[in-house]
Structure formats: C-alpha cells, structure tokens
Design a protein around this nucleic acid. Sequence first.
DNA 1: TCTGGGGTCCTAGGACCC
DNA 2: TCTGGGGTCCTAGGACCC
Length: 426
Amino acid sequence: MSYTQYTKKIALVDCNSFYVSCETLFTPKLKNKPVVVLSNNDGCIVSRSNEAKALGIKMGEPYFKAKDIIIKNNVQVFSSNYSLYGDISRRVMRTLKRFNSDIEIYSIDEAFLDLSNFSDNEIEDVGKEIRSIVLQWTGIPTSIGIAKTKTLSKVANHIAKKKETGVTSLIGIENIDPILEKVDINDVWGVGRQLTKFYHRNGIYNAKQLKNISNTWIKKSSNVLSSRTAMELRGIACIDFEKTTTKRKSCVVSRSFGQRIEKFQELKEAIANYCLNASEKIRSESLIAKSITIFIRTSPFQSKFGYYANSKTIDFPIATNNSIEIVKAAISALENIFKNGYRYQKAGVLLTSLSNDDDKKNLFSSEKDEKINSLMKSIDNTNYRYGRSAISLASAGVQKRWNMKREYSSRIDTADFYSLPTIKAI
DNA sequence: TCTGGGGTCCTAGGACCC
DNA sequence: TCTGGGGTCCTAGGACCC
C-alpha cells in the first residue's frame, strides 16, 4: 500500500517582548531604549526590551535587585497593565485569523497556526508576510517558527528570535540534527529545571541528543511527557493542535498584598474580593464550580517573622457560580485556617472542578435559583458598564489597604476613549 | 523595605472494594 | 491476627508552560 505522507506545517507566532512592545506602542520615543515591565505589586521584572536584556537584566529578577542597573542606565520602568495587554493581544490574534481561522491561542502573546495548505517552497515567504501584516496593523513585532510539530516550531521560533527577518522554517530540511545540536536541552519546550538536571546527569546536553536517544529508555527513566517531547523532535506529532477553545478546569485569583496584613478583617476583605473576581470570571464563561480552595501565607523570604502557610478546601453541596455562596464558603474556610500573630503576604482563591452551567438545570433548580441567577447577571452587567466593583458585597470592604502597588503604570486604557493618545495631522 | 499570577497534566500513594 | 492479589477512584504535590 502506498500513500503520500501528509506533512503538517505548524507555525508558532510569538510577540517579541510583548508587554514592553505594548507600552512602547504609545510612547514611540522609547523605541530602541532600555525598557522593562514589572509584575503585579511591582515585584519582578517580567518583560524586557532587547536593550534592557543587553544590560544584563534577568527575566523574573526581583525589581529591587535590578534597581541599581536600572537607575544607572536610565531604564524606563512600567507597572503591568493587563487590560491593555489583553486588548492588544486580541488585535494580534484577530489579525492572525486572516491567514487561517483555525488558530490555537496558546498564551497572551503566542499562537499556533496550521499552515499545512501552503507548499514547502512558499512557506517561509508566508511567514514573512504574516509578520509584516501583524506589524503593520497592530504595531507589534513578532517572531515566527515553522515546522512539522509544535515542539519543532518552538525550536524554529527560538532561532527566529535571533534573526533579522524574524522567520525560520524547518520545513523541507532533510537532516535537522546540525540545527538541533545547537539548541540547549533546557531551551526545548517541555524541559524545565528538574528535567534539565536529569538529562545533564545522563550526558544529554542538547536537542539532537534527546531526539536520538532510545524511547524506551526515556519512558522508563522519566515519563510519557518526556518521550512525547523526543518524538516531536523526530518530527512525529504527538501534541494535538487545539483549534476549539476548550473550557478551563479551574480558576485562580491570587495576589500578593501591597503591604503585609495581620488582621483577620482585612484578610477577609481581600479573600471576598478575590471571590467576587473569580465568580464573575466563571459566570462570564458559563461555568459552575464544585469546590473552592482558599490559601494564605506569609513571605517565604522573611523567616524571622515566622513562616505560616495553609489552605482549606470546601465542597459545595451543589455546584455554583453564585458570588454570595462562594464568598460565604471562602470566609468560613478562612476562619478555619487563620492564625493570629503572622504578617500575611499573599492569599488566593481557587475554584475547581468547573463544569458547564447548564448541567445545573436539574431537578434541584428552583424559582429561588432563577432569582439569584438574574441578580448575578444584573450585577455583572452593571459592573461591566460602570467599572469593576461598582456593585459589590459588604464583606468586600471599602478601604482596601491590601491593594496592589502599581507605581509606574502608564495608565493607558484602550477601553477609555479619553485616555487614547491623540494623533495630530500635519 | 522590596521576590508575580494563572493555568495544565502526570504520578504516587492512600482508601476502598472484591 | 496474619496472610494476598488485583482493581478503581481520588487527592496532593510536583513539574511544566507562559
């Protein structure tokens, strides 16, 4: 039996220094300047321009540690502005869908595109065109890697990042071993810190070695995920392309506090707010939660004050997305694990075992449920129109001393007409 | 003084059953 | 009281991703 092998062509489009690119979009004079964006609470550095990378500022480095270099080199600093990044991200994704509506949005700044319809000869040019259209329409520079499997397109993308054209295709290359040899094992998708240590112990230092090692050995001494990675390096697709957006299975809202918290009352307010956030989020996706976990902890970096961390899970009698029920459960969980005398640094809420909303329409649903549902709906609508927390619950408090620190926010709100930058005609 | 937040998946081990 | 094998289901924790 003979058949023609149908070769997939998967492109990975990745926005360059995404958060920094979003911020500089509205401040063109920052082009080619060192710029960084900080995580929530201005804690860590999570995005760097090339110039900032060149200064030796590390990804994930705490801000206070990099402060010297930042001041000395006049690095521009921004607090993170997620609604801006989310908005720009949607514009980029919408643009990508022009080339193939079946895209897999992998993260806020990355998407996989199935380009199998294009021929081997034209594929690199298609990549270049995608790159230039995205740049022209959204102002965001990207890197594009194209290959037979997702893992290989990640490799290609890694190489593209360092190229002037920003595009690398591994399609049609007979022997990719010389290319894989130059890719460090820890730069392979799916190989993190622990696996890197494990591979090093076994004399494996680059992607070529992983590709050519026996599969049974990997399965035996590691796990199926690792063997999947190796297969993908061989050009055999094992990780599915997920066109349809599958519903999430959990929803987390957690934050570090702007300042340490010691009082139960304040912790309660924070937890209540996270619950409101989380329940609104799952309502907007028509999901209900079967259980809730809350956790609190002190700073792991300040042991002199004593370390305490604990969590508590509660199952709902009937899965719910009702803010009032969720807050109530969370607070009773908090009463369970709260201890006096600690300086709390972080807390969070996890809604788990999420399922579809309509599963709830069973024999237990009553007129009362209907009333609550429509109440929740009108809260969501009002908050959507007048800003989050226009309507809230009493337990959510008003002081919010625990709120995040955002000292360096650009305050650009693409949803706010009046803060849009003005463009003067010449 | 200052160290992010939000996800998914796999595995080992315990509880329980026959 | 101890002895056994084999199966399922659930959970906590760890590893990974961005």
